[in-house]
């Protein structure tokens, strides 16, 4: 770890000001000199690996928890402050009962110890686990734009097949974000240019030619709240996570599914895919393939095919096409059988 200045913000304004302090060039937020730290489970990991090298580290834990550390149900949805810990959200009775996909996506992530520390704001911005990104001596376009991508022809079992570019195939590792994108969440931010609302689906961007740009946020822009609208589909929802071991592993593949059924017929459906894409991934193609049809193994299978139609496999991750499809089919059929 390299030396840095540590500041503890007591309000979002404070935090934004402190983090903006030293901005000189137009850098993407992950490379800006000022960085936020919340639970620190992702930030300190990458600082120790010499991948993140903040000059100013702004601790946001001193911000009023009564306002920013709360989960509030309101008419039409639920709102999470950015300082809510993963463990708090997964145990919240309303989240468990009315948004099971959210509770499960959190509960199946990381370990209990990490979830006790990690915040929802930090969670959605966690960075990829690409091994070549994590080890600073490899060529990596995300870490050092233009240096090359070591994963492209390297060990890429954990890498993405959807939303990739010829610059970067790193997968977005998080689980919670899949539930958020499936449920049309909104993100509220406070930044140097004031407050704004961003559709969660617009928060992350594909790598394209600039894999170092991961979100539409600006340096020093703080996520303050995440809001999830309720809908007919939120209760009948689940998160299915497939992995090599039973716990404490990122998804090999995963699916967030939310269903609104009229008898057997799909009135509305939300499908998001984890472990296979460069960003939180909503599959409208799969949803469109199901809407208005009865949910059967056959229609589920057609939806799964649609979800992976555009997949571009590399040497070691091609198995994630059949696996990803089976994950979607299994999740749809299990969700159909839920009591809602």
């Amino acid at each position: 770890m390299r030396p840095f200045v540590y500041e503890r913000a007591t309000s979002p304004e404070d935090a934004v000001r402190a983090a903006r302090g030293k901005v000189t060039a137009n850098l993407p937020p992950v490379q800006a000199p000022g960085q936020f730290i919340a639970g620190g489970t992702n930030m300190t990991d990458y600082m120790k690996l010499d991948v993140m090298r903040p000059e100013i580290l702004v601790d946001v834990n001193g911000i009023d928890r009564n306002r920013y550390g709360r989960i509030e149900e309101f008419d039409g949805g639920i709102r999470f402050g950015h300082l809510v810990r993963m463990a708090e959200a997964e145990e919240h009775p309303a989240v468990k009962a009315k948004y099971p996909v959210i509770a499960q996506s959190l509960q199946l992530a990381a370990s209990q110890q990490i979830r006790n520390m990690a915040t929802l704001g930090g969670n959605v911005l966690q960075r990829t686990r690409c091994d070549y990104f994590r080890e600073a001596t490899w060529a990596c376009n995300k870490r050092e734009p233009g240096s090359g991508c070591s994963a492209m022809d390297g060990i890429n079992r954990r890498h993405a097949l959807l939303g990739t570019s010829d610059q970067c195939i790193a997968s977005y590792p998080g689980d919670f974000a899949q539930a958020l994108i499936a449920l049309d969440a909104l993100v509220e931010t406070q930044g140097p240019k004031g407050n704004r609302k961003i559709r969660f689906a617009d928060l992350h961007v594909e790598p394209g030619n600039t894999p170092n740009v991961e979100t539409v946020l600006e340096p020093g822009e703080l996520i303050t709240f995440i809001t999830v609208p309720s809908g007919a589909w939120t209760r009948r929802s689940m998160y299915l996570k497939i992995r090599d071991r039973q716990s404490y592993e990122f998804a090999v593949t995963s699916t967030a599914v939310a269903l609104d059924l009229d008898g057997d017929t799909v009135r509305d459906v939300r499908i998001a895919l984890g472990g296979v894409a460069t960003r939180p991934w909503r599959s409208r193609e799969a949803e469109d393939a199901l809407k208005g049809k009865p949910l059967t193994p056959e229609t589920a299978s057609a939806a799964a095919d649609a979800a992976f139609a555009g997949a571009k496999p590399r040497k070691y991750n091609a198995f994630k096409i059949p696996l990803g499809k089976e994950t979607v089919i299994r999740a749809l059929l299990e969700t159909k059988n839920m009591e809602a």
Partner: peptide
């Protein structure tokens, strides 16, 4: 390439 205990996997309690 997988030089840590998240990526080098051993059996966990579960």
């Amino acid at each position: 390439v997988n030089r840590d205990l998240a990526e080098y996997m051993v059996a966990v309690n579960a």
